[in-house]
């Protein structure tokens, strides 16, 4: 508002000046202090308006860029989340087995694509067992289950150093119940990101 005041004053001065037309020929304009001030105010107002429009344009441009960037960040975030979700998909095993089941090979192939599309990504595979096996043996079995998935990926070109393996044995069941469906769920490999997972690209064709 403070800035508007000189503009309003300037307009008032101009209107008064215009209203004086039609009378006996006016004396040659004698610059007086008031009209000088009015001209100066007019000039300032024009400059200000120009500045304002440039600023507005700049602001709008920045806003557009910001929105675009946010949109693309959101997209990147969304993609990263989706890829993480795919990466986290578990695979399961038959009782006392550590071989990859045919249906689960697809899930591993998806991880293979993700690892290829994201060369900085490092993961860990954690093998788990159901409660039916021996407590100590299950640590070895969980280890073998994690190694089986790693072996699958490494044999298809993933650098071994990008994949860590661990075993939790039967110590961390997903479902603590003692029935077939709980056991089937608990015999599993879990996949987690250990490094390079902040921004993940979708593998081509997914």
């Amino acid at each position: 508002m403070r800035r508007a005041t000189p503009i309003v004053l300037g307009i008032v001065v101009l209107v008064i000046a215009a209203a004086c037309g039609g009378a006996p020929p006016p004396p040659p304009p004698q610059p007086n202090a008031d009209s000088l001030a009015a001209l100066e105010a007019e000039r300032r107002a024009r400059e200000q308006a120009a500045r304002d429009s440039v600023e507005r344009a700049n602001r709008e441009a920045e806003e557009r860029i910001r929105r675009a960037r946010e949109d693309s960040l959101a997209a990147v975030r969304r993609t990263t989340e989706e890829v993480r979700g795919m990466l986290a998909a578990r695979i399961n095993f038959d009782f006392d087995r550590s071989d990859i089941r045919p249906g689960d090979a697809q899930i591993l192939d998806q991880k293979l694509g993700i690892l290829n599309a994201n060369p900085n990504l490092q993961i860990e595979i954690v093998g788990h067992c159901d409660e039916r096996g021996s407590d100590e043996y299950n640590l070895a079995l969980g280890n073998r289950r994690a190694l089986a998935a790693k072996q699958y990926l490494v044999s298809r070109g993933i650098e071994a150093g990008r994949i860590a393996t661990r075993s939790m044995g039967e110590e961390q069941p997903l479902d603590p119940a003692s029935n077939e469906s709980a056991w089937a769920q608990n015999r599993r490999d879990e996949f987690g990101v250990t490094a390079g997972g902040d921004v993940l690209m979708r593998p081509p064709g997914m």
Binding site: L139, A140, N143, R144, L147, S167
Partner: peptide, 9 residues
């Protein structure tokens, strides 16, 4: 003791 690592157990 038993040790599990990349070489198995």
């Amino acid at each position: 003791f038993s040790r599990s690592n990349e070489e198995g157990t």
